[in-house]
Design a protein around this nucleic acid. Structure first.
Length: 113
DNA sequence: AAGCTGACTATGG
DNA sequence: GCCATAGCCAGCT
């Protein structure tokens, strides 16, 4: 594939879309999957552009390493992200996923290669 | 072209 | 254990 890396952002979108329903992941996990662990900030930045995509990006399944809905403020409503996660069976309190470690899902590495 | 930004993470006090 | 600071990198102005 000649254009495997159109942009760093698209890499993020692909991974986020791979997140199974009822699961969540962290920015660091995605960044690590992309091979750019230190670009964890870019992951969030990429999701910021998700609204420009025609594809639906389950950005609500992406939280920070503490399981906190750090990006909830970027949704239509500050509670939308929480409601979406609760709808998937997660337990959210204080903007933090209680069953975070149970719901945590790490993207596989041998999938893109 | 150069500097700022940012949905993070790690480290130090 | 919580708050402050630094490092990070890639897109945006």
């Amino acid at each position: 594939m000649a254009e495997e890396s159109s942009s760093f952002f698209e890499r993020v979108y692909e991974v986020v879309k791979e997140i199974p329903h009822g699961k969540v992941t962290t920015y660091g996990a995605i960044a690590k999957h992309l091979g750019t662990t230190r670009s964890s900030r870019m992951v969030g930045w990429a999701l910021n552009n998700c609204h420009t995509l025609e594809d639906m990006i389950p950005a609500h399944r992406v939280v920070n390493r503490l399981g906190v809905l750090s990006g909830a403020a970027h949704f239509g409503t500050p509670t939308l992200m929480q409601e979406l996660l609760e709808n998937e069976g997660h337990i959210i309190e204080e903007n933090q996923i209680k069953n975070f470690k149970e719901a945590l899902w790490i993207p596989p590495y041998s999938e893109h290669d």
